[in-house]
Amino acid sequence: MLTIGCHLSSAKGFLAMGKNAQAIDANTFQFFTRNPRGTKAKAMDPADVERFLLFAEEHAISRILAHAPYTLNACSADPNLRILAKDTMKDDLMRMEYTPGNCYNFHPGSHVGQGIEVGIQYIADMLNEILTPEFHTTVLLETMAGKGSEVGREFEELREIIDRVHHKELMGVCLDTCHVWDAGYDIVHDLDGVIHRFDEVIGLHRLKAIHLNDSQNPLEAHKDRHAKIGEGFIGEDALKRIVTHPLLKDLPFYLETPNELPGYAKEIALMRNA
């Protein structure tokens, strides 16, 4: 069965997210660990988490994905911002221990003119300061569109980060369809070629999640503007080929399209009927 969900608000807690997922026929979901444009996080409610875990088991909700705030920049030129990124991620991973066995996704960051090599090293350094075998969460590097000085536009950049991380067993990748399209990977006309390239460079065993989004921009635009399914340059047919591809169909898919719950419900139904 297709594992698919969307991004849900975590404002009312885990149980509320589980119920919202179940209401739109989702069997997974993504959520922000804290204010996506800031650093503040709500206190964990262990009782709410316990109720959610029971609800998730009853309704076959699994493989949830936490998303780090956008403000986290592990390769900032400002050392204080790098420290903030490290502290934020470490705290997030400790909070993820309430729901062990899931994934935590983050944007690698922007090197802001320092150069890609410096950016990659800063990101790897942060991960090496944080990750220990005691964590039960897989940390995912997200593929990026390449706007500005973003790290992660090319698969090789993500591979280079992983190669420098000591605890590689805790590392994976989240492929964003809008981002890879905007980065220049033609998933519309050469999906098999893109998958082969990912496997060759990073390894498909590292691919743990897919953000399923259309794009407002043409191939290699480097702009990162998500669109609703079928309303962008990638198109409905290409996205259906992704969720049904033999090498991808068993992965969890997370919609980040510009929608509210009714719109997500329609897209989930559309993909389930692919």
Rank of each mutant, 00 (worst) to 15 (best):
N213E: 13
G184S: 08
A227P: 04
R225M: 07
N213P: 12
D214G: 07
L204Y: 03
L191I: 06
I242M: 03
V243T: 09
R206Y: 09
M171C: 05
R241C: 08
H205I: 06
H166W: 13
D182C: 11
I161N: 03
H211M: 03
T244Q: 11
H189M: 07
D214P: 06
F198Y: 10
R241F: 04
I229S: 07
V201W: 07
K223T: 14
G172A: 05
G232D: 08
F233G: 12
H205P: 06
E220Q: 12
I187H: 00
G203M: 04
V165E: 03
A183V: 07
E236A: 12
I161H: 04
G172V: 01
K208F: 01
V194F: 07
A209F: 02
H245Y: 04
L191S: 07
G172K: 00
I162K: 03
M171Y: 02
F233Q: 11
R225Q: 09
H222V: 15
N213C: 14
L239W: 00
D163P: 15
R241E: 05
G203N: 05
V194L: 09
R225E: 06
R159T: 14
F233R: 13
E200N: 13
D224Q: 10
I195S: 04
L247R: 15
G235R: 00
I162C: 06
R225H: 09
Q216A: 12
V180L: 15
V180D: 06
H226Y: 10
W181T: 00
L239P: 00
I229N: 07
H167L: 15
G203Q: 04
D192Q: 11
K228A: 13
H245S: 04
I187V: 06
D190I: 05
T244F: 08
A227Q: 11
G230N: 10
L175E: 00
E160A: 12
G172D: 01
D163W: 13
H166E: 15
R241M: 10
R159S: 15
G230Y: 07
E200V: 15
V165F: 05
P246A: 10
D190W: 06
L219I: 11
H189W: 09
A227W: 03
L170G: 00
F233V: 14
K168E: 10
G235C: 06
F233D: 14
H245N: 05
H167M: 09
D186S: 12
F198D: 06
V165W: 03
A209S: 13
